[in-house]
């Protein structure tokens, strides 16, 4: 599944709902669904706020794939400013947002709710966050 939407804050809810609807066929638990929605929400918010500075003319891409055995792979991509120091950005409480109340916990939340979080970023070119989560589908077999 591939989706592109404008970098408006209103679209955060749309993006996480779309991801949840896409993985629904795997019959995930409510908890798994909430965790996926939260991960997507964090990554999409990052792209909108930090990547694009909330410029509605820019587009965020959301890709979801389902792999054999109930593995979900989600990529959130932007062509925004990029992250200078990815390691630092992933540290809890780190934030570049000064004007509003930012917690700097986005990556920490993603990491605790998803199995794997990979970040590829280039300054001036954009950022791609790929999150992987293995769903517990054993009870369905």
């Amino acid at each position: 599944m591939k989706l592109q939407f404008s970098a408006r804050a209103e679209n955060e809810a749309f993006a996480r709902s779309a991801a949840a609807a896409f993985v629904a066929c795997l019959d995930p638990t409510i908890e798994e669904l909430t965790e996926i929605k939260t991960g997507v929400s964090e990554a999409v918010s990052n792209s909108i706020i930090h990547g694009y500075g909330e410029n509605p003319n820019e587009m965020v891409t959301l890709e979801c794939r389902i792999r054999a055995g109930g593995k979900v792979v989600i990529t959130v991509r932007d062509e925004g400013v990029g992250i200078e120091d990815v390691e630092k950005a992933r540290e809890p409480m780190f934030t570049t947002g000064k004007t509003e109340e930012r917690s700097g916990m986005g990556f920490t939340v993603m990491e605790s709710f998803m199995d794997k979080v990979e970040v590829v970023s280039r300054t001036g070119e954009g950022t791609a966050v790929t999150m992987t989560k293995q769903l517990d589908i054993s009870y369905g077999l």
Partner: peptide, 12 residues
């Protein structure tokens, strides 16, 4: 539903 934005709201 709540993501990390809620943390900022409470802290603020």
């Amino acid at each position: 539903f709540m993501d990390s934005s809620g943390i900022g709201v409470v802290l603020g």
